[in-house]
Amino acid sequence: MKIIVCVKRVVDTETRVKVAADGRSIDLGGVQFIMAPYDEMAVEKAIQLRDAAGTGSVTVVTVGPAAATKELRTALAMGADDAVHAVVEARMGPNATAEALKQVIDGREYDLILCGKQATDEDDAAVGPLLAAALGLPCVAFVHGLTVDGRTAIAEREVDGETERLDVDLPAVITAQKGLAEARYPGLKGIMAAKKKPLETVACDATGGKTELRSLELPPARAAMVKIEPTAAGMQSLLTALRNDKKVL
């Protein structure tokens, strides 16, 4: 079973981000980067499917800055077989990313393409479906359960609290929702072995963007909370505040 997994280098989800001086990007000083968590689940699931099949390969693909080699090496350390890196330093919207991924993937053999449901930076949740459309493949997004039976994948996802089960012809694009797999820690043996695995750098045309980032701003700071004592005077001040300040009474 040959699986391609698309991954993205994103700012660590525990980072407190600052908007850079240009008002259109994140200040990257001192920021840590990780593989997007849903992409990590997709890598894990791919490794599990390959190992269950007992044959095949897992290829990780990224479109992103040169530094994203680190995230590819992490995927290789987890157990992926090889990696392809289309180096693009500039920020890309989802259309451009899907178009670039298509260029990288075209001509390669695969039975299945896995992506995270969304990267945790811009949260578009669009690259997976756009890639499927570009490749003319079926797509099931937000999948939390996946098995493969011959040339059919059985994908499960949650819809209105119910589980929807879909049969989908392979090859297909599946995007990973929480629950699909729990990413393993890359062990030291895997890390040491990752260095020797193939990591190919390719060119791509990254100009297919249909959105442009106009500006970024942090959400407004929340006002301090007001504590009201459970006394008659406190209740009076609450009523006054609701009537005059909030105008809800």
Partner: peptide, 14 residues
Amino acid sequence: TEEERMVRDAVRDW
């Protein structure tokens, strides 16, 4: 090296 950083980060995360 990249490898040394990855080893450190793997243990740090664990």
